[in-house]
Each structure stands twice: as C-alpha cells, then as structure tokens.
C-alpha cells in the first residue's frame, strides 16, 4: 500500500506509479509514451473524481487526517503576510499546539490563531500532535482580548484531535480554560471568523471556534467526540468508527444543512493536499469576503447577531 494515498485511493496510487515509471522510461522523447502518459493522467483524474464524488463519512475523516493535509503553518504564509508570531499565556508556558500572531490579510491587520499538528515526527512532538493544553487556550484568549483592544478581526484555524487528555492538563484546568474562551468569545467586540481546516474535535476545537462566521473546508470534519471514541462507548468497539462517523453527521455538507456551519469551502479534486496554493487562495478569498460583510455591521449589531445565533443552536 502506498503510504501517500489513503486506502480507498489505492487505485489512484497505482495509476500514479505507472505514470511515474513511464516518465522515467520516456526521457528519450518517445511520442507514444507521452501520449500514453496523457491517457493515464486523464484516467487518474477521472478515477479521482469518481472516488471523491462518492466518499463515505469515514473516508472523509481519513482525508481530514491525511498525513499530507495542509496545516495551519502551511496556510499562514500563503494566506497572510507579515506574520509576527506571539508566544505564551503569561502565566505558565507557551503551548506550541496553538499558534497565534498578528499578520496582514492584504493590507488589513488581523489576529490569526490556529491549531497546529506538526509535520515531521520531531515537529509533531513539539506541537503535541495538535492537542492543546490549558496554556494554549489561555494564550489564544490573551491574543483575542488584545485583538479586541486594537480593533483587529480574529481568524481562527481549527485542526485538532482534541484538547490534551493528561494529568497536567487537568491540574491546570483544561475545562475552565476552554469554558472561559467560549464565554469571552461570545461577546468579544471584534469580528471572529473560524475555519475548520482539518479535524475539529469536540471542546478542544470549539475552544477557539465561537464567533460570527464558521466555515469548513469541504473534506474537514467536526464532531463532539471522535468516531473511534463514540464507537468505543456505544458499540463497545473502535472497529465501528465508520458507523459512528456516519451516525454523528461529521461532514461539512451535513453540518451546513443543519445550519451549524455557515459555509463550506470547496477543496481541489482529491483533497486540499493536492493543491495547497489553490485551497489557500480560496480560503483567503472567503475570509476577505466575510470580513467585508462583518465590518459593515455596527459592532452592537454584530454582537447581537452572534448572541442570537448562539442562543438558537438546536432550535
């Protein structure tokens, strides 16, 4: 099995391997070979289209967790400029699972906050696999309050397997740190736009996800408990994770239909990782458009709308 492709993508992987082989052979400019490559490319893209038009909820969970999926640190330099990272919660530590700082979206100064899983093994360890501890949420809160003071809109990028379940996390009050963010974000007097870019897992995701506009990338997921966790509890076996993913409605299309998510951002064929620049462009355009709308509202109206929306969940 090709590790760069997911299990349901293996037929695509086989074609891509063939294309690569032919490219190696075809260095002598053989016309037949380039024609063959062209046919295979077409076949591969058709196959991708076919596979991706029929993904199960569980397949989408896998795409959202794809090892090559773009993370916050891939997006920040592509969407923003002049990113100055700010560190620390001023109480205990700097949590590398949450990245934050001031940047520009075109000319506009913005506070960007995102969860980062880390790419290489060393990086993943440094980022705690994107599982924030209380100091991460408190850093985010500090930056959001700063954004309010200096009238900077807040953009958050959500991508976490969950807040860190550990002894130190509990000792320092992980529950309170998340709860506090939910409370303050409900009334922070500056626009807040949140985008789920990969995995939005439960309270750990929501802890930076309350605001005026919530968007999801097409193949990102958002759930109250991981499908594995849900399967373990209800079905008594994590093997039922695909069933749990199906039952909980974890995908962007369903959440959009339910009105929990405001918008979905279409991904390149085969997922965001196939064309990071393209998806970054689309995210950037989406943020810019939504900010324009939000900034036209008087702050009190924006806050009233935000509160109204919070109160309406489930109605």
């Amino acid at each position: 099995m090709n590790p760069n492709y997911l299990d349901f993508e293996q037929p695509i992987a086989e074609l891509e391997v063939k294309i690569e082989e032919l490219q190696l052979v075809g260095s002598d400019n053989d016309l037949n070979i380039s024609a063959e490559i062209e046919t295979l490319r077409e076949k591969s893209s058709k196959l991708t289209e076919k596979i991706y038009s029929n993904l199960s909820a569980w397949d989408i969970v896998k795409v959202a967790r794809h090892p090559q999926r773009p993370y916050t640190m891939d997006y920040i330099p592509r969407i923003f400029s002049e990113f100055d990272e700010l560190h620390g919660d001023r109480h205990f530590a700097d949590d590398n699972a949450i990245v934050g700082g001031i940047a520009r979206l075109d000319d506009k100064p913005i506070m960007v906050i995102g969860q980062e899983k880390g790419r290489a093994v060393k990086d993943k360890v440094m980022r705690n696999f994107g599982m924030p501890k209380p100091e991460g949420y408190r850093k985010a809160l500090r930056l959001m309050e700063m954004a309010e003071r200096f009238k900077l809109p807040v953009v958050t990028l959500i991508d976490t397997p969950g807040a860190y379940p550990g002894i130190d996390s509990e000792e320092r009050g992980i529950s309170e740190s998340i709860a506090q963010n939910l409370a303050v974000m409900s009334r922070l007097a500056t626009p807040i736009i949140s985008i789920v870019i990969g995995e939005g897992s439960s309270g750990g995701a929501l802890g930076i996800g309350v605001g005026d506009h919530l968007a999801m990338l097409q193949y990102s997921t958002y759930f109250v408990i991981s499908p594995e966790g849900c399967a373990n509890i209800i079905w008594k076996s994590s093997e039922n994770a695909p069933d749990a993913a199906e039952a909980m409605g974890v995908t962007s299309d369903i959440l959009k239909d339910m009105g929990i998510v405001d918008a979905t951002i279409e991904e390149p064929m085969g997922g965001a990782h196939r064309d990071v620049d393209l998806i970054s462009e689309r995210i950037k355009a989406h943020i810019a458009a939504e900010l324009t709308v939000l900034e036209q509202l008087p702050v009190e109206d924006m806050l009233a709308k935000r509160y109204q929306r919070l109160m309406s969940y489930g109605n």
């Binding site: 709860a179 939910l182 409370a183 409900s186 929501l206 759930f223 109250v224 849900c230 409605g249 489930g314």
Partner: peptide
C-alpha cells in the same frame, strides 16, 4: 458530558450556555 447522539448540536450547547453565563457576569 455532551450527548453523543445529538452530535454537534450538543457541542454547540456548550457555547450557548457559556454565552448566557457570560451575560449574567456582565
């Protein structure tokens, strides 16, 4: 905790209850 069978609607009740508590505080 949150009720799994109501999925994200349950999750959003966290935001909803926290928001109304914040209003009480204010």
């Amino acid at each position: 905790g949150a009720r799994m069978q109501e999925a994200l609607i349950s999750l959003m009740q966290m935001a909803k209850t926290s928001a109304v508590i914040e209003r009480m505080k204010q």
